[in-house]
């Protein structure tokens, strides 16, 4: 199953400048793991010392923020878009 992962501008230095990546996985956690496997230097920016997704990173599957509704276990349908949105503006991002 392939999904499109949209990379925030702040992290594109770690993805060879790419803003859209096609990755395999059925859940948010699997897709983020696949992303970090492909670009290991992204790991410390996305995950904390316990290996959990950083608390200020919101994850959108399509237009839905799944941070508080499934989180890394949330399903990502084939062909869907997954977006990592930093709460850089202090935002909950659940708009």
């Amino acid at each position: 199953m392939s999904v499109t992962v949209k990379i925030p501008a702040a992290l594109r230095a770690y993805t060879d400048g790419l803003s859209d990546l096609a990755l395999e996985g059925q859940t948010v956690g699997q897709i983020i793991d696949a992303l970090v496997e492909r670009y290991p230097d992204l790991g410390p920016h996305l995950k904390d010392d316990d290996g959990q997704l950083q608390s200020f990173v919101n994850v959108f599957v399509g237009s839905k923020n799944v941070k508080n509704s499934g989180g890394i276990l949330a399903a990502v349908p084939d062909g869907e878009t997954l977006m990592l949105v930093p709460a850089i503006a202090g935002g909950s991002g659940d708009n």
């Binding site: 950083q54 200020f56 202090g90």
Partner: peptide, 16 residues
């Protein structure tokens, strides 16, 4: 400390 952060209103100068 990271270009991806939640410290509102601040800039990571090398990546912005």
């Amino acid at each position: 400390s990271s270009p991806l952060h939640g410290i509102e209103g601040t800039k990571h100068m090398d990546s912005t």
